[in-house]
């Protein structure tokens, strides 16, 4: 098992027909972006059709797991989770060069370091957390 940063009581992924393949790839430690075969637009979360050309010919593609910190918040208020406080929720701008023709961002966490305002823009890489055999969650660490 990988390093753990969050407890099992974290909310589980709620998956639908479109996001299940994304989480199944995550279980194999592969970070993916859904891409439109027709126009090359990258989509997250995975959707039934492309929001740019409305094609339903969409393919999940692996990305490098590299990116940069777009914005973040340090959460100090426990809701009903048992994780250590505070923790960092972040928006990551993924490196999708050669994969999609647009910038694709996703929500995640920064783990293994505290985060300061000046860190916005810093390079990050995916760090997989195996919550169980089925559920692996992509967190991110500073390079």
């Amino acid at each position: 098992m990988s390093e753990r940063w969050f407890p099992n009581s974290m909310p589980n992924p709620m998956v639908d027909h479109y996001s299940l393949p994304w989480w199944q790839a995550a279980a194999e430690h592969r970070l993916q972006v859904q891409c439109c075969d027709n126009c090359g637009h990258g989509i997250l979360p995975p959707a039934p059709i492309c929001s740019e050309c409305r094609s339903s010919q969409l393919t999940m593609k692996d990305v490098s797991g590299k990116g940069s910190l777009y914005t973040y918040t340090v959460v100090h208020q426990p809701v009903s989770m048992e994780q250590e406080m505070p923790f960092v929720i972040a928006i990551i701008e993924l490196d999708t060069q050669g994969i999609s023709n647009n910038t694709v961002r996703m929500m995640s966490n920064i783990v293994g370091a505290s985060v300061e305002p000046a860190d916005i823009g810093r390079a990050v890489s995916v760090a997989w957390e195996d919550m169980s055999e089925e559920v692996c969650v992509p967190r991110f660490q500073f390079d």
């Binding site: 589980n12 992924p13 639908d16 996001s19 929500m107 089925e134």
Partner: peptide, 26 residues
Amino acid sequence: PPPTFVQSNEMLMSAMGFVMPYGMLT
């Protein structure tokens, strides 16, 4: 039980279900 996928066919839950594993709850 250990962490698992929870099926949702409701659009709000699908959208939130993609961000909640990161603790996005408020």
